[in-house]
Amino acid sequence: MKISYFAKVREQLGRDEEHIIFPDTIKTVQQAVRYLRETNDYDIFDDEARLRFALDNELARLDAPIEGKGELAIFPPVTGG
């Protein structure tokens, strides 16, 4: 699955995207985020309330299933305008 990062998340991780093959046990956005945090020491993922998510360019909640999706985007709350 393609994982893309934006803004502060991208900057802190030092990468804008990566490709991850998740184990079959990873079913939701939340499980994917926790898997990434544990396997890569991504401290910025500690506070999930400070993150927003999108699956295939649609906003997604933590409990959204990732099955069949091609891309998970992870970014901070938005600050435009």
Partner: peptide, 14 residues
């Protein structure tokens, strides 16, 4: 529009 834009559109300022 402005109230919603501030929270709904994926833009980030530094």
């Amino acid at each position: 529009a402005m109230d919603r834009l501030k929270t709904d559109v994926p833009l980030w300022k530094k």
